[in-house]
Design a protein around this nucleic acid. Sequence first.
DNA 1: TTAAAGCTTCCCATAATGGCAAGGTCAAGG
DNA 2: CCTTGACCTTGCCATTATGGGAAGCTTTAA
Lengths: 165, 165
Amino acid sequence: MMNIGQAAKFSGVSAKMIRYYEQIGLIPKAIRSDAGYRHYSSLDVHSLRFIRRARDLGFSVEQISELLVLWCDRDRASGDVKALALSHVAGLRAKIAELQAMAQTLEHLADHCHGNERPDCPILADLAEPTAAAQQRSQAPLRTPRFGGDTPASSRIRAATATRS
Amino acid sequence: MMNIGQAAKFSGVSAKMIRYYEQIGLIPKAIRSDAGYRHYSSLDVHSLRFIRRARDLGFSVEQISELLVLWCDRDRASGDVKALALSHVAGLRAKIAELQAMAQTLEHLADHCHGNERPDCPILADLAEPTAAAQQRSQAPLRTPRFGGDTPASSRIRAATATRS
DNA sequence: TTAAAGCTTCCCATAATGGCAAGGTCAAGG
DNA sequence: CCTTGACCTTGCCATTATGGGAAGCTTTAA
């Protein structure tokens, strides 16, 4: 049993985020000492590591909630996990394509910009009046705020089906 | 001269965002009718189109603010514009690399998952205890919330050096 | 005993966008 | 002249995941 600071250090998840995850119900409420300090077991730390790793792989908290449910379900079908993972990969690929289109368009424009002291600049010219040439599919991101938004996130997570039961 | 709805329609920027851009000082305060309605000229719409296009190319509002300054500066050096564009491209490329690392890791894991009714799943196994194999550089995004965070954004923009002067 | 380090909760901020609500305005039609 | 509907205004709330900071209590080491 350790305090939140230790759990943070061992899991790689900041204390701040651990409290946040508890608050939104991604992890169950930690047991408290008499003074109100949260206490974590190495099992809890294990869960946190899982979460950390999933975050590193770009899963949203919402998706991690689902992953945790599957993780704890001894009768899960690996197909469900795979489907979740692949749908996330699809989201990543879509985002990558979008960013690549932007980068490509910009690089194309930059290639034609002398980049000297003179004011004439095809980059600004294109921003002012887009030429069909560079118009690819960078327009209308359809449903992409700036990224990170792959899942709409229902409301409150309340899965907390993690370790402690 | 047109109302905000028309300007929105012609520029592709929502009325909501036009007000927002005005509020943060990206564009100058619109002139108002006696009743308080904002009015826009086709020149204003032109600025808004510029902004819209820049957003489509992934520039942050902060960066767009700089682009607008350059756009309006007859004595700009195209090198400054190019530098700004290329630094943004670098940010995009970095993000792309990060997402690709995630996607690749996940695809690799998914490849080894049967995806059937059985519970054994290498994806969950890896999330639980990462194996060096898939550990590439997906860890520690260094300074990347979820994306969009390329520029720290000082405080308030207050450039408003756009059209109307 | 005291100081430092750690914990708690609460509030604020981020980037860019949408939604909703209450209320004023304007134009067209009766 | 009045109503209706479309449009405008402001203001507030929500989103995602994360960090910062303050005020106050606890624990620990000296």
